[in-house]
Amino acid sequence: MMPKVMVIDDEPFILMMIEDKLRRGGLEVVTLRESKGAVDVIRREMPDLIILDWMMPEISGINICKTIKTDPDLANIPVFMLTAKGQEDDEKLGIKCGVDRYITKPFSPRILLELVLEQLGNK
């Protein structure tokens, strides 16, 4: 069974780009444009990895991450934070909230795929 990666971002082109790249990398991809209700979708889908945007309307990515990491059923799912927030303090806050890998935009889809595969491989 293919590993399942869930991507949550409010920018459609980001979702498109990541979906295409990861599918090519042989992964199953679930995308979500809205942060609201994201946690319920995660519970339902139980992905192997989650790629999250930080700044989204409704619920910010960092709060979703915190919810995941404090939920015993979901805490084991690796979370990649893919964000335009490039400040050092932001990264520190992300790591503190349990982010497994902090990737700043703009990013290389190729490297993202490699990192995702590496994370899944380690798992």
């Binding site: 920018e11 082109f13 980001i14 780009m17 335009a84 990013f107 290389s108 889809p109």
Partner: peptide
Amino acid sequence: HEFRTPLSAIVG
């Protein structure tokens, strides 16, 4: 910061 998102599209 604000330029990063459109740049992501362009670069990625």
